[in-house]
Amino acid sequence: MTSFGSLFKTMFKEKFRDMNFFLMINLIAIVVSIIVTAFQGGMNRSASLAITIGWSMLAYLIAFVRLSILQERKFVRDSYRLIPISDTKLYLANLVTSLVNYIYVVIAQIVFYLVAAIPNWSEYSDALNMMAMVNGRATFDAPNAIMGVIALLCLSLVILILSWTTISLIHLASRSASNFLPSTGRKVMNIVIYVVVILLVLKVVGFVTDQLNNSVNMIFNSNYTANFAVTILVFLVVAAIEAAINIYLMSNWVETVSE
């Protein structure tokens, strides 16, 4: 039997290589944009950070989509499904390697921000102090802000997990359903599954947005801590239930794509 560790390592390496290639393109895009802006004479001290943040918004989305594709492919292709390991371990190795790689991309983006912020460093720290003052405090409250940032990161992480378990649920449920349906009805059923699950997700996302707003407030005000913990817990429980369903579908109904 294959160990969780060796499968984890293999999956991680494959996704890591993909993400590095992607970050390289991201970096090239930033550099090219800065050069173009400079030639057009639009360069000022804050432009490099603006450009980096602009590209990073796209980068977060693309990295998410790319990792989703790599991840979902592994659930239905023989190259991975023939590996002698339990479906639970395969599922978890796949999900966790995606997660770790996404965190890597986020950290890379933060490094990009810091580098891009160097030309204008003092101004940004002044701005932060300003914001704190506007929110009614004399100085920037570091411990409170750090708590808020951590809460925000935790929530983002949990949302990421939930998004992936949801995507897998859509994918694996529609593949399972195709076993029972005649080839003609398959398309219709797939659409129904997509719509139902996506509607559910939209509801969840609406809820999430509210919570995110709260978290931003919390950086400067700590009344929301309890709310937050509950939200994160609820998300984790939903994700765990989805993961359990996914693993069940994998071991009992999902067939690999035959060549």
Partner: peptide
């Protein structure tokens, strides 16, 4: 058991997924 069965079987799987 499927997972254990897989450890005994080598199948020409035509590289699907790579």
């Amino acid at each position: 058991k499927p997972a254990e069965r897989k450890s005994h079987v080598s199948f020409t799987e035509h590289l699907g997924g790579l």
